Simulated assay, not measured.
Amino acid sequence: MPQTRLHLTAGKIEADRIFAALDGAFEDDGLPLAVLELDEDNDVHEVSLYADGDVDAIEARVKHVLAGLGLPKPVEREALPDIDWVSRSLEGLKPVRAGRFLVHGAHDRGKRHSGDIAVEIEAGLAFGTGHHGTTAGCLEMLEQVVRREHPRNALDLGTGSAVLAIALARLAHIPVLATDIDPVAVRVAATNVRLNHVKALVETVTAPGFHHPIFAGRAPFDLIVANILARPLMRLAPQMARHIRLGGSIVLSGILDRQRDAVISAYVGQSFRHVRTLHREGWVTIHLKR
């Protein structure tokens, strides 16, 4: 789907305020944001938000945020070419190692070593190539949890490219339910599952939250991994508690360092206890037990 860049200019102090406000307003939407210095001498900075879908509605929200800051600045649009930048960028990405896992594209099959748990990902339109700190952090944490707890039934909630579901299936040889609200992501996930020869273990389903009937037949889970965003994870805490078995583990990521304590508090309120936090590239991966 083509993207539109919504952008505006301001001085550094105002640009930082605008960026922070937009970051909070659009955190649940997962829309990329950027701030760039255009002219140091004249203090010109540019704030950009990359939108798809209903761009008019998104622009109206941006203007509402600006009005709330008392900074009613003009917002400009730039239509971006419809290019699958993730697939294109994979051509230049190096393999990523996280514990025993090696996440790689087709162009790096020859770099697999004996003893590697290799996960080949052609991410297409979906997020999650293993190169982001949250995905790599999850892989490292999952290896430790599986080694200690030997789960038998797992859920990858918000699976994206299915890298975590595939890794779990290949590491633990257990059934994994991989769900996402985005049908495009689920199609890409299914392709990656077949590519990694774990179709017998990983089931991919388009499911918004825990309301899909698939969960009634598969829960309770021994292990749930969810690499999403902090606010959705906090809202999901009660449902996570209902779908994890007593003594089971959850691994959460997509969480900035500054959001860690709030996420943990939401889960402690649902009778989870914090086991460990892994810090990586400004993001955290959190292990909790019920």
Rank of each mutant, 00 (worst) to 15 (best):
L139A: 06
I264K: 04
H7D: 02
F221H: 14
H131K: 05
V103C: 14
D84H: 09
V202G: 03
T277H: 07
L6A: 08
K199I: 10
H7N: 03
T206G: 09
G137C: 04
V146R: 05
V186N: 08
R109M: 00
G158W: 08
G209F: 01
D52F: 15
A226F: 11
L195N: 10
L38G: 01
V65N: 11
I244N: 06
G133I: 01
L195M: 13
L38W: 00
P232D: 13
D16T: 10
A169M: 07
I58D: 01
L93A: 14
K111V: 13
P2H: 15
F210K: 09
W85Q: 06
R231S: 12
R258W: 01
G254L: 03
L201H: 04
P175M: 07
V47Y: 04
E143G: 10
P232V: 00
E27Q: 10
L229Y: 15
A25S: 08
E91T: 10
T206E: 15
A136F: 04
P151Q: 03
D43P: 01
H287C: 10
H243S: 00
R97N: 04
E91V: 13
A262L: 14
A60W: 10
Q259I: 12
G92L: 12
H287K: 07
A21P: 08
G158E: 02
A200Y: 04
I58Y: 10
H107D: 04
R17K: 13
T277P: 01
G70Y: 01
D28S: 14
V198R: 08
R100K: 12
K289F: 07
L171H: 11
A219E: 03
I228C: 10
H274Q: 12
F19K: 02
R97M: 03
D82T: 03
A167Q: 05
K63P: 04
E27N: 13
D28Q: 11
R242W: 02
I83P: 02
H113E: 15
P220H: 12
R170H: 05
P238W: 03
L71W: 08
A266D: 03
T277R: 00
